[in-house]
């Protein structure tokens, strides 16, 4: 029983981190209808900044710099690449982001080299014991910060003028533009927020029990892609639900791999994708996604 509780708590904590990443996919998709395949490289960039800066300026300023840096990089990609293609179709735009991701990831991975870079976080390897359940402090922090970040974002999305503009743009770009919504700002803003959330996620992907950031960290962002799709790629609630679902699925698959042969040999890695295919078969637009009409 404690084993199950431990798995669930750990699953929820990593699920919250996946939700942060998935939210990034959703925000960009809502404002520009693009699937941002460059998201993994934003995550890697944010984590890398924290890793190289924390020794000199301390952890918290470094985290701030990482979040700001990833946000700036996101906005830059939007400004330099996507804006030029505004006239292009969304399919083409999504494909362009793959090219952007290749370039950015190669460069950052080269800088990281073969190192494992610790992020200098304050939680270290301390754990909390609650009734026999062992949870790392970093995991609790991840859960807390992710929930806080997502709440702040959802509130901003609902009440600030930027959020309203973004929702308007997602609803109908042309009308929104006519009503005075600056589409450029909205989409640059969306990319920046996505970058910031990715940097935050990078932090929690690289702290205990993982020893630090390395070039493979960006694969975690790819796991959040199914999270976004399962939830419905245009639904913020869906990103949250999808992230948690995937975190828990993964934790259970790892936890029970000794009991079932099927779960062994890295089944946990593909469980998110399997879950996604099943969901897509039943609901092609995801659990919370808007159903598209007018399909022949």
């Amino acid at each position: 029983m404690t084993a199950l509780a431990e798995l669930l708590v750990n699953g929820l904590a990593s699920g919250a981190v996946y939700a942060l990443v998935a939210l990034g996919f959703v925000i960009v998709h809502r404002s520009t209808e693009v699937i941002n395949f460059a998201h993994p490289s934003l995550l890697l960039a944010g984590g890398y900044l924290v890793a190289v800066l924390h020794d000199d300026i301390g952890f918290w300023p470094a985290l701030g710099a990482g979040v700001a840096g990833a946000a700036a990089l996101g906005a830059l990609v939007e400004f330099v690449v996507l804006r030029r293609l505004r006239s292009g179709s969304h399919g083409t735009l999504s494909i362009v982001t793959i090219g952007v991701d290749i370039v950015l990831t190669v460069e950052i991975a080269r800088r990281i080299g073969a190192e494992v870079l610790p992020l200098g976080d304050p939680w270290g390897d301390r754990v909390v014991q609650v009734g026999g359940v062992t949870i790392a402090q970093a995991r609790i922090a991840a859960l807390g910060v992710a929930v806080a970040a997502i709440t702040v974002f959802l509130l901003a999305f609902k009440y600030t003028s930027w959020g309203v503009a973004m929702r308007a743009a997602a609803e109908d770009r042309a009308t929104a533009a006519l009503m005075g919504v600056r589409l450029g700002r909205v989409s640059a803003g969306a990319w920046a927020v996505a970058g910031a959330l990715a940097a935050l996620a990078a932090l929690f992907l690289c702290v205990f029990p993982t020893p630090g950031l390395d070039r493979a960290t960006s694969f975690a962002a790819l796991k959040a892609l199914p999270a976004a799709v399962i939830g419905g790629v245009d639904s913020t609630t869906g990103a949250l639900a999808g992230g948690l679902l995937i975190g828990v699925t993964e934790a259970l698959a790892v936890g029970y791999q000794d009991e079932a042969a099927l779960l062994r040999g890295g089944f946990a890695d593909i469980a998110p994708y399997l879950l996604m295919i099943v969901v897509l078969l039943i609901r092609p637009t995801g659990l919370f996604g808007t159903r598209e009409l007018a399909r022949a």
Binding site: P226, V229, I270, Y273, L274
Partner: peptide
């Protein structure tokens, strides 16, 4: 599926 969603589903195929 259409567009990018199809892309992601086929991506899943690679991992599976």
């Amino acid at each position: 599926l259409r567009g990018a969603s199809l892309g992601i589903a086929t991506l899943a195929l690679v991992f599976l």
